[in-house]
Nucleic acid binder design. Structure first.
Lengths: 333, 333
DNA sequence: CTGAAAGCGCTTACAG
DNA sequence: CTGAAAGCGCTTACAG
């Protein structure tokens, strides 16, 4: 292994001079010496040791991406895309990404962040209950996504979930639907709770019923869906799902039951994943701009890294309707 | 920041004793001392510094996952799933993952691997042309996936691509199809080339035509598909795509043209991604077991890490037909 | 513009 | 079972 010392000896200078060249403190080294050292570095294939550098400088140039989801994080196209974009933007700044998935215990998180002395971390899908412990234990810049924590001084990038729910309900009601199924109720996830609240508020105002029997969990079974369809005295005419992936699955299940979407029943999703643009029928959905969300998260993180006095910010990106083919006007009876 | 030294002072022992406790060299520390140190460690929230540890021990407990694909790696469900599973299995062994995406230059790879002194690396989608340079520059255990390099002593995990192509052609021919479109020709990718070779060989034997005009690239445009459909004097009755994602896109395009799958034309994919099981129609495809592939890659890597004398292995996982609803018998004319 | 000294927080190797 | 010394490969802080 080639070290600074080797280069210094070969160039007949001190290690400090070589160190300055590597770190581009060019103003302090003569052009001639500099060029000679650069030649030797490239000839010997010298690569600085990040561990030594981090140990003495106390900056790791490492960003942690911490994801709550377990073994197969990437089953979710949303997670996949977020992580992909975040990695891209972090690398663009010359930093490296450490990926932690399936993190269940906030103590683990702290152990990893500290042990690797990361310069910052971005969290996906962490439940708000652990958030304060994490912040308390880690005095580095942290960016959360989709948090509804009321903690002060929290930097977060989220989307207008409540508004998304409203848009969904409004669209279905405009299309004449009154007997609706909502998929994505959750007591654990504030994100889903907000989407549902927006949806339910619009329904209430419009006199549309959203029965508890037609409020299904996150990832409903075939049986739950079938039961909800025929509940009460009027069949449901539209389904709103809080995720595109689940919406596509529901369309598949409905199709297996001999129901055509949107002729017999309308289905609407949330996220605007790529598959929704090529599914049959093409999915009407609510878009969230994942690339932008990732970009904001990374930008905010680096703002805090370069200037610790940067005030905390809660950035809420807006969402909007993407009308495609999976929602039709309700049949008049 | 709490250090080994702090713990040692508080416990009234040397740093070596604390170091032994942390690294579980328990046989060499008295139970009493050990318990006392453990208490102090937990009370002070001590976390060992990975940089210091790695610098002196020359082992980083770091695995690099290097992916050729660019900005949005995770657009591909295959990549997403592979990376997700690999991360999971690596973490299970107490190692951390450094993710490098969009790597274009093998020199970059070398710089990163060396700089972080990673204990091993797994490569996805690296073209074989760089493979020898990478191996030459990095004397650590490396596992490649889907490589067709003829280099000796190469540890690789791949699948039976040729056989996959054969299975696809055989299935379509058995269903009575003779006028076929193949999607996924590539001069750069040996994986695709092998799938195509298997497909073409079976076609030739069965007297089915695979015209160059009906051999389309990896990710064909709508125009290319439409043109291929009506080429020659007999319309194509089946399409074979080397990726499920593209197959689903093709079904969507065909549907936009008023063609029903499989009544008017059959479509077959490759990979068995999750979406294929819920698409309309459900996709007939060739399965590759991504979880298993990731598991093998990680296992092989760690075998080589723990014992450098482990012989190189080229593991080829088999593939098989998953019959669903997107392929039907050809209409007799 | 250049360098000698000290130190980052650990582990290795040796000694007792 | 325990410890003193040296060193991993860099950077910081100071001096000239």
């Amino acid at each position: 292994m080639v070290t600074l010392k080797d280069i210094a000896e070969e160039a007949g200078v001190s290690v400090m001079t070589v160190s300055r060249v590597i770190n581009n403190v060019s103003s302090k080294v003569s052009d001639e010496t500099r060029a000679r050292i650069l030649d030797i570095i490239s000839a010997r294939g010298y690569v600085p040791n990040s561990f030594a550098r981090s140990l003495s400088s106390r900056s790791s140039r490492l960003i942690a991406v911490v994801v709550a989801a377990g073994e197969n994080v990437f089953r979710s196209p949303y997670n996949s895309n977020m992580i992909g974009y975040i990695t891209h933007f972090v690398q663009e700044r010359g930093y490296s990404v450490m990926l932690y998935t399936g993190v269940s215990d906030f103590k683990d998180i702290t152990r990893q962040l500290r042990s690797w002395n990361v310069d910052g971390a971005i969290f996906l899908g962490i439940f708000d209950s652990d958030l304060n412990r994490i912040r308390q234990d880690n005095k580095i810049p942290l960016v959360f996504t989709d948090s509804y924590s009321t903690a002060r001084q929290l930097t977060n990038v989220g989307i207008a979930d409540y508004h998304g729910g409203e848009i969904g309900a409004r669209h279905l009601i405009e299309k004449g639907h009154r007997d609706l199924i909502f998929v994505g109720s959750s007591i654990e996830s504030p994100v889903l709770r907000e989407r549902m609240r927006g949806f339910a508020d619009v329904c209430a105002k419009a006199g549309a019923t959203l029965a508890p029997e037609r409020t299904l969990p996150d990832d409903p079974t075939k049986e739950q869906i079938i039961k909800a369809l025929s509940w009460g005295n009027k069949p449901a005419t539209a389904v709103f799902s809080t995720s595109d992936f689940v919406a596509l699955n529901i369309i598949s299940i409905l199709s297996d039951q001999g129901l055509r979407v949107p002729q017999d029943i309308s289905v609407m999703g949330f996220d605007n994943i790529e598959m929704g643009a090529i599914s049959i029928p093409k999915l009407t959905t609510i878009t969230q701009d994942i690339r932008k969300k990732a970009q904001y998260s990374v930008n905010l993180l680096f703002e805090h890294i370069s200037n610790p006095d940067t005030p905390a910010q809660n950035v809420i990106l807006d969402v909007h309707l993407v009308e495609r083919d999976s929602v039709a006007a309700a049949n008049s009876i």
